[in-house]
């Protein structure tokens, strides 16, 4: 494994059982993600993009195969160890933002830091920095409902980077956005990969979005092609 490989997937299979029937979604695929690259994952609906992303992110377990992140096999970790691992290593961006409506932008960004030992002042400072990176320093005290979709997604990105993770996973982050807002988000993701050396894996249906990535993986019938 080369020095710069962040994620290394080998022989990954995922089989769902439904009513005695087996549904093979991923069948023995390999994937490498290099550090500091912005890669896209495309494929038809139901091809298993989210499933693959979730397994790499430690939210789901493979039926067989290994997922190594920074050389560590994450399928060996227990549920609670995985949760801690996620809070330190991963940032999540969802299609529907998933912000807490009762919290301000700043508080939403601060949320992952509640799991750390940082004091209140330090948490706030880091959340402010993250919001500045996504260009929302003017909206810190706004609630999600007072923000546009694009702004909400930028708050979600600030939340994803506040604990300085090595990897960011994004499942259709521009799916709910108009062209202009989507472009802004993609520019931001590009910048995070280039300037902050984040490894980003983005699932998307949008060819325009995929074009912005350094590399595009295509998933079909359980196997990958580039």
């Amino acid at each position: 494994m080369s020095e710069s490989t962040m994620v290394r997937v080998r022989g990954l299979s995922k089989i769902y059982e439904r009513g005695g029937e087996q549904l093979k979604v991923l069948s023995g695929l390999d994937l490498d993600l290099a550090e500091g690259t912005f890669e896209a994952l495309m494929g038809p609906s139901g091809s298993g993009k989210s499933t693959l992303l979730n397994i790499i992110a430690g939210l789901d377990r493979p039926s067989s195969g290994t997922v190594e992140v920074k050389g560590e096999d994450i399928s060996r970790l227990s549920e609670s160890a995985l949760a801690t691992w996620r809070s330190r290593t991963l940032g999540f961006i969802f299609q529907s933002y998933n912000l807490m409506p009762v919290l301000t932008a700043l508080e939403n960004v601060e949320l992952p830091l509640l799991l750390t030992k940082l004091g209140g002042a330090e948490r706030k400072k880091r959340a402010e920095i993250a919001l500045r990176i996504v260009g929302l320093e003017q909206r810190m005290d706004h609630y999600p409902r007072q923000l546009s979709g694009g702004q909400e997604q930028r708050v979600a990105i600030a939340r994803a980077i506040v604990n300085d993770p090595a990897i960011i996973v994004a499942d259709e982050p521009t799916g709910d956005l108009d062209r202009q807002s989507a472009d802004d988000i993609l520019t931001l993701l590009e910048k995070l990969a280039k300037d902050m050396n984040k490894t980003i894996l983005m699932v998307t249906h949008d060819p325009v979005a995929a074009d912005r990535a350094t590399k595009v993986h295509r998933l079909d019938k359980g196997a990958l092609s580039s």
């Binding site: 992110a57 939210l59 609670s80 949760a83 330190r88 999540f92 969802f94 998933n98 949320l111 939340r159």
Partner: peptide
């Protein structure tokens, strides 16, 4: 539920 799912993804136990 979805919100709780997001919190769990972020690392909440």
């Amino acid at each position: 539920t979805q919100e709780y799912g997001a919190l769990r993804a972020i690392g909440f136990l």
